[in-house]
């Protein structure tokens, strides 16, 4: 399953809740305000680094760039564009948006 999160980790528990339900074989995509969670020094950095051991983590590049965070992404997080977003949805049988 592709898990999609769009909230800053400081705003809501969506990322925490998502990671508690993400199984191996799935993937995590951070979009909109959730891309802050993919950056170094963020409260979610530890959780993202631990998650990377079990599942690939992606962040939407245009969202990082719009927020000036493109140079601060945690190593191992893959940056994708909207085409990459589409590919991720296509590659996984289901997607779940953790709103």
């Amino acid at each position: 399953m592709l898990h999609i999160v769009n909230k800053s980790p400081y705003e809501k528990n969506s990322l925490t809740s998502c990671l508690a339900h993400a199984l191996k074989g799935g993937a995590l995509l951070l979009i909109e305000d959730a891309v802050y969670g993919a950056t170094k020094g963020n409260v979610a950095e530890g959780a993202i680094r631990r998650a990377l051991a079990d599942l690939p983590v992606y962040a939407l590049g245009p969202d990082l760039e719009a927020r000036g965070m493109q140079g601060n992404v945690i190593e191992g997080v893959k940056v994708v564009d909207f085409g990459g977003f589409v590919d991720l949805v296509a590659e996984h049988r289901t997607s779940q948006s953790w709103l």
Binding site: M1, A20, H21, A22, L23, R93, T94, S95, Q96, S97, W98, L99
Partner: peptide
């Protein structure tokens, strides 16, 4: 998590 994994469509 297992229940979610079994779904075809998840609407939140």
């Amino acid at each position: 998590a297992q229940l979610m994994e079994q779904q075809d469509v998840i609407i939140g």
